[in-house]
Design a protein around this nucleic acid. Structure first.
Lengths: 352, 352
DNA sequence: TTGAAAGCGCTAACAA
DNA sequence: TTGTTAGCGCTTTCAA
């Protein structure tokens, strides 16, 4: 592969056996004469020999490889997660194979097969599929599987995820305090991914609980791929609210939806926070550090979870499993604070 | 690793030899009786057998693995590149190992060693280091190396990169047309990465050529990690321009700098495009599709290259090398159009 | 049409 | 303190 440089070559050049070189490589200097050690070192330095990790893995039955499946590596959420997970996993000596499934269950399935064939020692999955037979089988076969943010049908897996219910409730109370009228949830197909579902559910529960005849009617299922779905949802909302002294407000269920809603609001020249209030569930990695949501228009009110923390903790779950931990499945929930900005502040501020 | 399921097991269960199973796995049905084939297939389906890719690679001397080094996977630039490269490479049957070097030459070096040990068939590098001995050695040892956007000292590698000179010139002419006065370049340490250097160079050349006593003084070296560097650059610029009937304008050398400049401008309540013009070199992956730069304030004028195209073409360069192509080093330049938005339009528009 | 045997580069008993 | 030997799971001559 590289050049024909193998452990045998090195052994020969140093005038020792493969075993001894192998011992050297694995740091087992205990019963090795300093001279031998030195000679081997010299040869390795001189030749630039790099041990073949494939062979090592085959023999030792540990690949020191971990797999990570994400739905869309370009979303700031995935990017932040990949970064954090890569750091933690890498720190521990593992190499990470990150695969972008594009949210497609079939691609996810293929990717999983591929990872298994490559003998990864563990897998983290931001699942694109509700179906989990495959994940179950993999876990069963001895490769630990840890979920990232998205639940799948059955339990039985470790998971790290972002808090959903409370932030939605916080968003709602905030909008009520600011005396917005009709409150709508813009959400993508919520059967497809558990966070969306849970946020939708939380919205329904909270609105139902607080009465006022609000409910399902206030939910708009949109598709950010098709801007017109946002446009039409927005228009309906505005029309339904006409004559109402209190303006309506939108909660976008996630970052993509939030940004596309901004776009839509802009295109109709609707003014935030007066004609409409806008806020959402937001996860924008370093964009958040930079304050992207703060850069947009008047600054967007948003739930702002630490995806880095999510990644780190989730990676740790996997590391523990790969180290042999076999306790009950664990669930780690990352709290997500609400950051209020001007897009929903129609009362307190002068708003120049 | 998985379960004890190996090719021997399958062979035994199907009542054939390992050889035959191996033939089946590799699609060599030519001289195989349909019954045999069927039997093997049945066993594999029943047992869920997955061939050990480690062993296959060891024997066949092709890992079907490719490595990708990026400086910061969280930047929209890297994210878009990773996506595109992953798609193209994956499509061709390779598995991609993406490593985030954090822009640290030492980490890059370690990552490269690791990839070599894992016997990757090729490597794409968005280099964090000017030094290239290691890359040269790797390439020399038979593993093709392709550069992504950043040149390194010596030539000798294939590279895909974004056009630098012309867009900077375009930005400058545009600013002149709009009759801005003093024009400044905000750029990070330009010794560290070739694109920055080339943009800086292009800026100097173009301003020098057009005379007017402008030149080095107009370049501000900033560090987006430290907002105060942006703040102070901005203030100096504003002060130097006081009394000038034409307002100053800033060209940010890349996306991060651009966004941080926005932040700074905001914090001082300076109005775009009147008190200042702002534009920049911009690479924001799906953000661009979404029109992030369009979401910010009045919309930012920016150079808007297709990082996807860059990723695709660069990946193709590597695929060709891995397939055995051995011609001269090739350089692919991706053109980057200028998108004019309101942040630099002080003339044409009413600008309500 | 199928199989036996050798070996990819490395590790780990077991001997010496 | 070091080496011999037997594989890890797979592919591939060569022979049958």
């Amino acid at each position: 592969m590289t050049k024909g440089l193998t452990i045998s070559t090195v052994a020969q050049m140093a005038g020792v056996s493969k075993t001894t070189v192998s011992r050297y490589l694995n740091g087992k200097y205990e019963f090795m004469s300093p001279q031998t050690r030195q000679r081997i070192q010299d040869v390795i330095l001189k030749t630039g020999y790099q041990p073949n990790h494939l062979a090592q893995s085959l023999k030792s039955r540990r690949s020191m490889l971990a797999g990570l499946l994400v739905a869309d590596i370009e979303s700031p959420f995935s990017a932040a997660a990949v970064k954090a997970i890569g750091d933690v996993i890498g720190q521990a000596g593992y190499t990470l194979i990150t695969v972008d499934t594009g949210g497609d269950p079939k691609r996810q399935q293929e990717a999983l097969d591929s990872l298994v064939q490559r003998q990864v020692d563990g897998i983290i999955v931001n699942s694109a599929a509700e179906e989990t037979q495959q994940l179950g089988r993999i876990q069963h076969s001895g490769i630990p599987v840890v979920l990232l943010d998205r639940f799948v049908g059955e339990r039985g897996f470790d998971i790290g995820y972002l808090e959903n219910e409370r932030p939605i409730q916080a968003l709602l109370s905030h909008l009520r305090e600011q005396e917005y009228g009709r409150i709508a949830l813009f959400v993508q197909d919520y059967a497809a991914a558990s966070p969306r579902y849970l946020r939708w559910k939380a919205f329904l529960d909270a609105t139902a609980r607080q009465g006022g005849g609000v409910g399902e009617a206030q939910v708009y299922v949109v598709d950010p791929q098709r801007q017109e779905t946002l446009d039409s949802a927005l228009c309906r909302l505005m029309v339904l609210s006409r004559g109402d002294p209190k303006p309506p407000a939108v909660i976008a269920a996630n970052g993509v939806t939030l940004m596309h809603t901004v776009k839509s609001i802009r295109s109709f020249d609707i003014r935030m926070p007066w004609d409409i209030g806008l806020c959402g569930y937001d996860d924008w990695g370093w964009m958040t550090q930079l304050g992207l949501a703060g850069l947009v228009d008047v600054g967007l009110t948003a739930v702002s979870p630490s995806v880095h923390e999510l990644g780190e903790k989730t990676a740790r779950l996997l590391l523990e499993r790969m180290a042999g931990y076999t306790g009950e499945p664990r669930e780690i929930c990352i709290e997500a604070p609400l950051v209020v900005r001007r897009s929903t502040l129609r009362k307190e501020e002068a708003n120049r």
